[in-house]
């Protein structure tokens, strides 16, 4: 299969949907000639023109809010927030308006809006451009929250998000933008709310999403090659809706669960996953506590050596896996 980057996969998804449906358009800061801060929409303005690839002033409330208004009146806007940290500036429009409009109006409104927002650290941009805030949005009924980890998923899930009649916050992974992976050339979509098992295994369920997936897959392969330990790597892909069944059945099989995400552990989405597992029929199968490895409880620091240590590392994830495998009650 051909390989393209995560950014190219996202661009393909947008372009294909825009070719198929005149109601779909892209707007945001510098999405036109500049191609977006990360080059995701590079060249799209040449094909679709500045009416459908709209550069916007730096006004996040108006960017998201006009997306909500356009969506409620018959368009299918894709809105790009340059860094997901800036969602905070448009929060009212997303959380109080877009997410609630349908329920508040008794089903008398449809808001087919996609908000694309790159997240994560590792770019040296420090505390205000590096957060992973996906759990905030998973807390809001009315939103869907996608966190794709591969080019194939990014394309298929974005196409589903664009076709979805609900507001979807689509967290793109900055450090994955340039990473290549196989992406089918023919038309396909990937449903929102369906987890993917990237690697089968019977010893432990490593539940992860977004940028942490490649790291977890490396560790799983390493442990298999070196020790014959078979770790099952499960990516929920969307955290709202959450594919509880796949997570639960994986843990019933393995008896051990480690959840890994880049976001700060405290209040992070791993806590929700842990609670779902603990409160499920997987509970009696557990041979060890459910554990989380997430970001340290600090803002993202600038210094590269510190920045590397603030998020889960190869060592911290690998040792957590080994500790859980060695766990004995009463030990």
């Amino acid at each position: 299969m051909r390989e393209i980057t995560y950014a190219e996969a996202i661009r393909e998804a947008m372009s294909e949907e825009m070719r198929q449906n005149d109601d779909v358009f892209l707007m945001g800061e510098d999405v036109g000639v500049y191609g977006g801060a990360f080059g995701v929409s590079l060249g799209m303005v040449d094909e679709f023109g500045s009416e459908r690839v709209r550069d916007m002033p730096i006004s996040e409330a108006a960017i998201i809010g006009s997306g909500v208004g356009a969506a409620a009146t018959g368009m299918r806007p894709i809105v790009e927030i340059q860094f997901s940290d800036f969602l905070t500036i448009g929060m009212d429009q997303l959380v109080n308006q877009g997410a609630k409009m349908r329920y508040m109006f008794g089903g008398n409104a449809t808001v087919p809006l996609v908000v694309r927002a790159p997240e994560g650290s590792g770019t040296g941009a420090a505390a205000q451009h590096s957060q992973s805030l996906e759990a905030w949005f998973a807390h809001i009924p009315g939103l869907k929250v996608a966190v794709p980890s591969t080019p194939e998923d990014a394309k298929g899930m974005l196409k589903s998000a664009i076709r979805d009649d609900n507001p979807v916050v689509f967290f793109e992974q900055k450090l994955l933008y340039r990473k290549k992976g196989p992406v089918p050339e023919k038309e396909y979509t990937i449903p929102l709310g369906k987890a993917r098992i990237h690697r089968d295994g019977g010893d432990l369920s490593l539940i992860t999403y977004g940028r942490m997936l490649p790291l977890c897959l490396d560790i799983a392969k390493e442990l298999s090659d070196e020790h014959g330990i078979e770790v099952e790597v499960v990516d929920p892909r969307t955290i709202r809706p959450l594919d509880r069944e796949t997570l639960i059945s994986s843990v019933k099989k393995t008896g051990r669960a480690l959840i890994v995400h880049e976001a700060v552990t405290m209040g992070g989405f791993g806590g929700e996953i842990a609670a779902v597992l603990a409160d499920s029929e997987a509970f009696p199968y557990l041979d060890a506590p459910i554990r989380r490895v997430g970001g340290l409880d600090v803002p993202i620091p600038y210094c590269p050596e510190l920045e590397k240590q603030v998020v889960p590392t190869h060592d911290s994830v690998r040792s957590a896996v080994l500790e859980l495998l060695d766990w004995e009650y009463g030990s």
Binding site: F25, E51, A61, A62, I64, G65, S66, G67, V68, G69, A70, A71, A72, T73, G74, M75, P77, D92, Q93, N96, Q97, M101, M104, F105, A109
Partner: peptide
């Protein structure tokens, strides 16, 4: 719609205007 947030409907009006124009 009415709106519980002061100023909350204004960006939405802009979006509806955008639909009308597009």
């Amino acid at each position: 719609g009415a709106n519980g947030v002061v100023g909350g409907g204004i960006p939405i009006a802009v979006g509806a205007g955008l639909t009308s124009k597009m």
